[in-house]
Protein backbone atom coordinates (compact mmCIF):
# COMPACT_ATOMS: atom_id res chain seq x y z
CA UNK A 1 0.00 0.00 0.00
CA UNK A 2 1.26 3.42 -0.93
CA UNK A 3 1.63 5.88 1.91
CA UNK A 4 -1.47 7.88 2.72
CA UNK A 5 -1.39 11.37 1.35
CA UNK A 6 -2.12 14.16 3.81
CA UNK A 7 -5.11 16.27 2.78
CA UNK A 8 -5.43 19.77 4.17
CA UNK A 9 -7.90 22.57 3.57
CA UNK A 10 -6.87 26.20 3.69
CA UNK A 11 -9.85 28.48 4.18
CA UNK A 12 -10.60 32.08 4.95
CA UNK A 13 -13.75 32.49 7.00
CA UNK A 14 -15.72 35.69 7.19
CA UNK A 15 -15.47 39.06 5.55
CA UNK A 16 -11.75 39.24 5.08
CA UNK A 17 -10.22 39.42 1.64
CA UNK A 18 -6.57 39.37 2.62
CA UNK A 19 -5.49 35.98 1.36
CA UNK A 20 -1.84 36.54 0.46
CA UNK A 21 -0.73 34.69 3.60
CA UNK A 22 -3.19 31.86 3.06
CA UNK A 23 -2.02 31.44 -0.54
CA UNK A 24 1.64 31.38 0.41
CA UNK A 25 0.89 28.82 3.07
CA UNK A 26 -1.17 26.72 0.62
CA UNK A 27 1.79 26.79 -1.76
CA UNK A 28 4.15 25.72 1.01
CA UNK A 29 1.87 22.85 1.98
CA UNK A 30 1.88 21.78 -1.68
CA UNK A 31 5.66 21.86 -1.68
CA UNK A 32 5.59 19.78 1.49
CA UNK A 33 3.80 17.05 -0.47
CA UNK A 34 0.30 17.63 0.88
CA UNK A 35 -2.88 17.75 -1.17
CA UNK A 36 -4.22 21.21 -0.47
CA UNK A 37 -7.83 22.17 -1.02
CA UNK A 38 -8.03 25.93 -1.29
CA UNK A 39 -11.51 27.39 -0.99
CA UNK A 40 -10.79 31.09 -1.29
CA UNK A 41 -12.06 34.08 0.68
CA UNK A 42 -15.39 35.02 2.23
CA UNK A 43 -16.39 31.55 3.38
CA UNK A 44 -19.01 30.96 6.03
CA UNK A 45 -18.14 28.47 8.77
CA UNK A 46 -20.96 26.33 7.37
CA UNK A 47 -19.35 26.23 3.90
CA UNK A 48 -15.97 25.41 5.42
CA UNK A 49 -17.28 22.57 7.56
CA UNK A 50 -19.31 21.06 4.73
CA UNK A 51 -16.38 21.28 2.32
CA UNK A 52 -13.94 19.78 4.81
CA UNK A 53 -16.21 16.78 5.19
CA UNK A 54 -16.78 16.33 1.45
CA UNK A 55 -13.05 16.57 0.77
CA UNK A 56 -12.08 14.14 3.57
CA UNK A 57 -9.33 16.42 4.84
CA UNK A 58 -7.20 15.66 7.88
CA UNK A 59 -6.71 19.31 8.78
CA UNK A 60 -8.53 22.58 8.29
CA UNK A 61 -6.29 25.65 8.44
CA UNK A 62 -8.26 28.85 9.05
CA UNK A 63 -6.79 32.24 8.30
CA UNK A 64 -8.37 35.37 9.69
CA UNK A 65 -7.00 38.90 9.73
CA UNK A 66 -10.18 40.74 10.47
CA UNK A 67 -10.51 40.18 14.20
CA UNK A 68 -13.56 37.90 13.96
CA UNK A 69 -11.63 34.75 14.91
CA UNK A 70 -13.30 34.56 18.34
CA UNK A 71 -16.59 33.75 16.64
CA UNK A 72 -15.50 32.13 13.36
CA UNK A 73 -12.87 29.63 14.51
CA UNK A 74 -14.93 27.99 17.31
CA UNK A 75 -17.96 27.90 15.01
CA UNK A 76 -16.10 25.71 12.49
CA UNK A 77 -15.08 23.29 15.25
CA UNK A 78 -18.64 23.22 16.55
CA UNK A 79 -20.12 22.49 13.12
CA UNK A 80 -17.65 19.70 12.45
CA UNK A 81 -18.54 18.16 15.80
CA UNK A 82 -22.25 18.47 15.02
CA UNK A 83 -21.68 16.44 11.87
CA UNK A 84 -19.65 13.80 13.64
CA UNK A 85 -16.41 14.98 12.08
CA UNK A 86 -14.53 16.10 15.17
CA UNK A 87 -11.61 13.90 14.14
CA UNK A 88 -10.67 16.67 11.70
CA UNK A 89 -7.96 18.85 13.26
CA UNK A 90 -8.63 22.59 13.13
CA UNK A 91 -5.78 25.06 13.34
CA UNK A 92 -5.80 28.81 12.85
CA UNK A 93 -3.66 31.78 12.13
CA UNK A 94 -3.63 35.45 11.34
CA UNK A 95 -3.83 38.56 13.46
CA UNK A 96 -4.76 36.98 16.77
CA UNK A 97 -3.97 38.70 20.08
CA UNK A 98 -2.29 36.50 22.64
CA UNK A 99 -5.09 36.97 25.17
CA UNK A 100 -7.42 35.11 22.79
CA UNK A 101 -5.24 31.99 22.53
CA UNK A 102 -6.65 30.20 25.57
CA UNK A 103 -10.22 30.86 24.55
CA UNK A 104 -9.50 29.35 21.12
CA UNK A 105 -7.65 26.35 22.55
CA UNK A 106 -10.61 25.75 24.87
CA UNK A 107 -12.91 25.87 21.87
CA UNK A 108 -10.93 23.09 20.19
CA UNK A 109 -8.44 24.93 17.97
CA UNK A 110 -5.35 22.74 18.15
CA UNK A 111 -2.68 25.28 17.20
CA UNK A 112 -2.43 29.00 16.48
CA UNK A 113 0.16 30.63 14.25
CA UNK A 114 0.65 34.39 14.21
CA UNK A 115 2.96 36.71 12.25
CA UNK A 116 6.55 35.56 12.61
CA UNK A 117 5.68 31.84 12.38
CA UNK A 118 7.79 30.23 9.68
CA UNK A 119 6.25 28.19 6.89
CA UNK A 120 8.49 25.29 7.87
CA UNK A 121 7.30 25.38 11.48
CA UNK A 122 3.66 25.28 10.44
CA UNK A 123 4.17 22.38 8.03
CA UNK A 124 6.22 20.57 10.65
CA UNK A 125 3.48 20.97 13.23
CA UNK A 126 1.00 19.47 10.79
CA UNK A 127 3.28 16.56 9.96
CA UNK A 128 3.99 15.78 13.61
CA UNK A 129 0.50 16.21 15.00
CA UNK A 130 -1.83 14.90 12.36
CA UNK A 131 -2.40 11.31 11.35
CA UNK A 132 -3.39 10.88 7.73
CA UNK A 133 -6.73 9.21 7.25
CA UNK A 134 -7.27 8.54 10.95
Amino acid sequence: MAERKLRIMVAKPGLDGHDRGARILARHFRDSGFEVIYTGCHQTPEQIAASAIQEDVDVVGLSCLSGAHRYLFPKVVELLKEKGADDITVIGGGIIPEQDFQMLYDAGIKAIFTPGSTLEAIARWVRENVTQGS
Binding site: D31, G33, I37, Y38, G40
Partner: peptide, 9 residues
Protein backbone atom coordinates in the same frame (compact mmCIF):
# COMPACT_ATOMS: atom_id res chain seq x y z
CA UNK B 1 6.92 16.88 -4.37
CA UNK B 2 3.74 14.86 -4.90
CA UNK B 3 1.79 17.78 -3.47
CA UNK B 4 -1.11 19.51 -5.17
CA UNK B 5 -3.25 22.61 -4.96
CA UNK B 6 -6.84 21.65 -5.56
CA UNK B 7 -8.49 24.96 -6.29
CA UNK B 8 -11.42 24.23 -8.60
CA UNK B 9 -13.73 24.17 -5.62
Amino acid sequence: TGGAILGDR
